Amino acid sequence: MHKFAAGSAVAACLFLCSCAATVTLPKTYAAVETAATPESAAMGLVLPQTDAAIPAWPALAALQSTPESALFLLSTVQLDVENIPQNPELPNGCEITSADIVLNYLGFDIDKVTLAEKYLLLHIPYWEADPEVEFMGSPADELSFYCLPGAITTAVNNYLSGQGSACRATDITGAKPAELEAYLAHGTPVLMWATRAFTAPLYNYTFTLADGSWPYANSHCLVLTGYDEDNYYFADPMQEVTAIDRDTFTLRYEQLGSHAVVITS
């Protein structure tokens, strides 16, 4: 069961926690007489008087007094996601390794190399590839490039289908940072595209993609695992970044096209 680390405040109304996640509710909230309403009493909501992990949905419902209007986004979320390094096997495999990080978090037993070799569509030579459909080269080759959400959702969904799982990868490109936070608050880590170490975008000017644009030279995919008032937090397969300030995150995320993927049931 996934756990959240709740901050000292419950922030704006954005998302309904309806899964089996838990939230650590601080004493300052647990002591509030919020479970005394008829609606909460009917649900059997009794909040503990000490810091404790309790089901997130009824906790937030009780804080709002009625289940129907329990739309809260926690001010601090940190999912317990274990990082997996892409090197040395996949020097250009940040995208498929990030997918493997999330799949392992969800309880699937699959390694990054198997996921790359059996499920990721590759196109060689890389300069003729469509990164939305396939990986530009091979993630095991240092002289390769990258792929985008379409290629990753196809790979992950092919794997999940083979496992008979109801989970599916979904391309949520265009989602705003607040929407990414909502997924995190729901217990769902997010694969997102930025640049390595969130530096300024760099381009390779030796060839163009099918749409006429220059390919990125420092595109990077990593897993968004948490946030607070100041920073976003990550599992980075390059092991370069664990946190970045909110403004820099938003800038690089949007510069790289606001590409993101989630795996949900």
Rank of each mutant, 00 (worst) to 15 (best):
I101N: 02
Y126E: 10
A166S: 14
P131D: 02
L103K: 06
S161A: 10
V113E: 14
T170I: 10
S165N: 11
A151P: 00
L160E: 01
R168A: 13
V133P: 00
Y159S: 11
A116V: 01
V156Y: 06
T170S: 09
L160W: 03
H123W: 12
G137W: 13
P139E: 10
D111Y: 09
L103N: 05
E142T: 01
F145H: 11
C167R: 05
Y146D: 01
K118Q: 15
R168W: 02
E128P: 00
D100V: 13
L148N: 14
T170G: 00
L103R: 04
E128F: 14
V156W: 12
E128N: 12
K118R: 13
P139I: 09
S144L: 12
Y159W: 13
P131G: 04
F135V: 06
Q163N: 03
T114F: 00
Q163G: 06
L143I: 08
I96C: 07
D141W: 12
K112H: 10
P149I: 04
Y159Q: 11
I110D: 05
C167Y: 15
V156R: 05
A99I: 11
G162M: 08
Y146W: 04
Y119K: 03
G164C: 08
C147K: 05
L103W: 02
G137R: 07
E128K: 14
L121F: 02
Y126H: 08
G164N: 05
A169G: 06
T173N: 01
L106H: 09
E142F: 00
G174Y: 08
T114A: 14
A140E: 15
E132H: 13
E117R: 12
Y126C: 03
D141K: 12
A151M: 05
G174H: 08
G107M: 12
I96A: 11
A99M: 14
A99Q: 03
G162R: 07
A140Y: 03
L121I: 06
N104Q: 15
I152F: 02
D141S: 15
S138C: 06
D109T: 10
A129D: 01
E132F: 10
T170V: 13
G174T: 08
D130S: 13
E142C: 00
S98K: 06
E95V: 08
A140R: 14
E128H: 13
D111G: 15
C167I: 00
I124V: 12
P125F: 15
S138Q: 08
N104T: 13
E142M: 01
N158E: 06
P149Q: 04
V156C: 11
F108E: 10
F135G: 03
L115R: 00
K118S: 15
P149V: 05
E132C: 04
I101H: 03
I101S: 02
I101P: 03
G174N: 09
D109I: 08
Y146A: 02
T97N: 10
A99G: 15
V133S: 15
H123M: 10
E95C: 10
Y159E: 11
L106R: 13
L120Y: 09
T114M: 05
F145M: 10
P125C: 09
A129K: 02
G162V: 05
D111V: 14
D141F: 07
S161F: 01
L148C: 12
I124W: 08
G137S: 11
G150Y: 00
E132T: 04
L120M: 15
T153N: 01
S138R: 09
I152K: 02
I101C: 03
E117I: 01
G107R: 13
N104D: 12
